[in-house]
Computed example of a mutant assay.
Amino acid sequence: MEDDCAFPLKSRYVFLALLFASIIFVILSASLNLHLYWQGAADGMLFYLVAGMLLAALIVWRSIPLMAAMQDPSWTDYIAGFKLSLFSVLFSIAAVYVFYYPLSFWLPDWVSNQLLEGPDITYDYRDGDSFVPNTLSFAAIVVLAPIVEEIVFRFLLLHRWADKWGGLGAAIGSSVLFAGLHTDVIGSLMFGLCMCALYIKTGTLFAPIFCHMCNNLLAWLYSYGAMVLSDLDQPYTLQDFQSEWYIGVTCGVIALAWAYRFLSQQPAYTSILSEQLPMR
Score class of each variant (00 low, 15 high):
123 Y>K: 04
99 F>C: 00
154 R>M: 02
131 F>W: 10
26 V>A: 15
186 I>C: 10
217 L>W: 03
14 V>W: 08
59 I>A: 10
220 W>A: 03
78 Y>P: 03
73 P>D: 01
11 S>R: 11
64 I>M: 03
205 L>G: 05
49 L>S: 14
92 S>F: 01
156 L>N: 11
227 M>W: 01
2 E>T: 13
242 Q>G: 05
261 R>I: 02
161 W>G: 02
162 A>G: 09
260 Y>W: 12
81 G>F: 03
277 L>Q: 00
230 S>A: 14
262 F>C: 08
83 K>I: 00
28 L>S: 11
159 H>F: 01
45 M>D: 03
174 S>F: 03
39 Q>D: 15
268 A>W: 13
261 R>F: 09
112 S>V: 01
31 S>D: 04
88 S>G: 12
168 L>K: 12
157 L>C: 08
273 L>F: 00
94 A>D: 01
107 L>T: 03
130 S>N: 06
279 M>T: 09
166 G>I: 07
80 A>T: 10
141 I>L: 08
170 A>I: 03
59 I>C: 06
191 F>P: 09
35 H>F: 11
184 D>C: 11
248 G>L: 02
91 F>T: 00
195 M>A: 09
235 P>R: 13
251 C>P: 12
134 N>L: 02
252 G>K: 15
138 F>M: 05
164 K>C: 01
231 D>Q: 08
39 Q>W: 15
53 M>N: 15
142 V>K: 11
140 A>W: 02
185 V>G: 07
194 C>P: 14
156 L>Q: 10
18 L>T: 11
275 E>I: 00
150 E>A: 11
274 S>K: 15
74 S>F: 04
245 W>E: 03
217 L>T: 11
119 P>W: 06
87 F>W: 07
71 Q>K: 12
164 K>M: 01
69 A>G: 07
226 A>N: 13
7 F>H: 05
56 A>S: 13
173 G>L: 02
239 Q>M: 12
195 M>Q: 14
213 M>H: 04
179 A>H: 06
2 E>G: 07
17 A>T: 11
206 F>T: 13
3 D>Q: 12
177 L>M: 08
72 D>H: 06
36 L>R: 15
195 M>S: 10
240 D>G: 11
41 A>D: 08
24 I>H: 02
6 A>N: 08
81 G>C: 04
279 M>Q: 11
233 D>V: 04
274 S>H: 15
140 A>V: 01
186 I>Y: 13
261 R>P: 12
237 T>A: 11
189 L>N: 07
222 Y>G: 05
211 C>K: 10
216 N>A: 02
105 F>G: 01
277 L>P: 02
279 M>E: 01
75 W>Y: 13
237 T>G: 10
206 F>K: 14
53 M>I: 15
203 G>P: 15
271 S>E: 06
30 A>T: 14
156 L>H: 05
128 G>C: 07
2 E>R: 15
119 P>R: 05
232 L>K: 12
258 W>I: 05
175 S>Q: 09
275 E>P: 00
97 Y>T: 00
253 V>W: 06
21 A>T: 12
63 S>Y: 07
243 S>I: 01
224 Y>M: 08
161 W>M: 07
255 A>Q: 09
96 V>E: 00
8 P>K: 14
119 P>K: 10
108 P>K: 05
277 L>I: 00
145 A>K: 05
258 W>A: 07
174 S>W: 01
